[in-house]
Write a protein that binds this DNA or RNA. Structure first.
Lengths: 134, 134
DNA sequence: CGGGATCCTAGGGGATACTG
DNA sequence: CAGTATCCCCTAGGATCCCG
């Protein structure tokens, strides 16, 4: 097999796996890619279901990875904006094929649910992890 | 923002995230894609570091997802071979951009380490999670 | 050889309360 | 507003043993 291309080793993936494995990471990358710059609470509502701790945590991680940029303004009230770096944008582009593949598999129209479905109440609860409202 | 393409929602990703999040899933998909068909212990050595339970577990998951096929031969000694399904192959193709992106980021040559580096001693231990041999 | 059953652990992630 | 700190729970995943 593998006649369709060279054999690709997963070594490079090692570094990415723990990033994309971070349940919310891709969500953040994506929402940020779609909206440009967002503030903490905008992300909170956009992701709806994430806890502040987890958001902060993931945000820090992505920041360290150089995927997103954090800009704080010393104002009252405080304002902090997050946006993708070039790297983050490339990551977003890189996972698009994956999204399309997933979309085809699950019968999503993919472009038809942009505005409303970025919030996922039962996000990861598909297997047997009720969100709480269940 | 998002001028390069339509806004992509992550709904479809919900289903994929828990697959790609499975630390070893992509490794298995890839190794299987490169080697065609592999037996349990071949996977064990190829992944080197995975526990039989986890391998079995992940194998089952991927099987249920229809990404790989399991063929058991009633012989002595028993032989079981795993190979990608068409879907699995598509997934592999879908994550290639991701791999290339990761490879570029980390300075891998990506095609230069195929034969030897599919085993990762310190696979996920990059951040501070020594494998045990450390 | 393949892999199921069991046990155990680290830590990811949610909730809540509190602070700068 | 934008976090941080704390607590707790739960699941993924490693180790081990054993069976077909």
């Amino acid at each position: 097999m593998a006649e369709e291309s060279v054999q690709v080793c997963l070594c490079p993936l090692e570094g990415v796996i723990d990033t994309i494995s971070k349940k919310w990471a891709l969500l953040i990358i994506n929402i940020l890619g779609n909206h440009g710059r967002l503030r903490f609470n905008e992300l909170m509502s956009g992701l709806e279901g994430i806890s502040p701790k987890t958001l902060t945590d993931t945000l820090h991680l992505l920041q360290e990875e150089g995927l997103l940029r954090r800009e704080a303004f010393a104002e009252i009230p405080p304002r902090v904006e997050y946006s993708l770096t070039a790297d983050g944008g490339e990551l977003l582009a890189a996972i698009r094929p994956l999204i399309r593949w997933a979309a085809r598999r699950e019968g999503f129209s993919e472009t038809g649910c942009s505005p409303h479905c970025r919030r996922g109440p039962g996000h990861h609860g598909r297997k047997g992890k009720p969100v709480k409202s269940a």
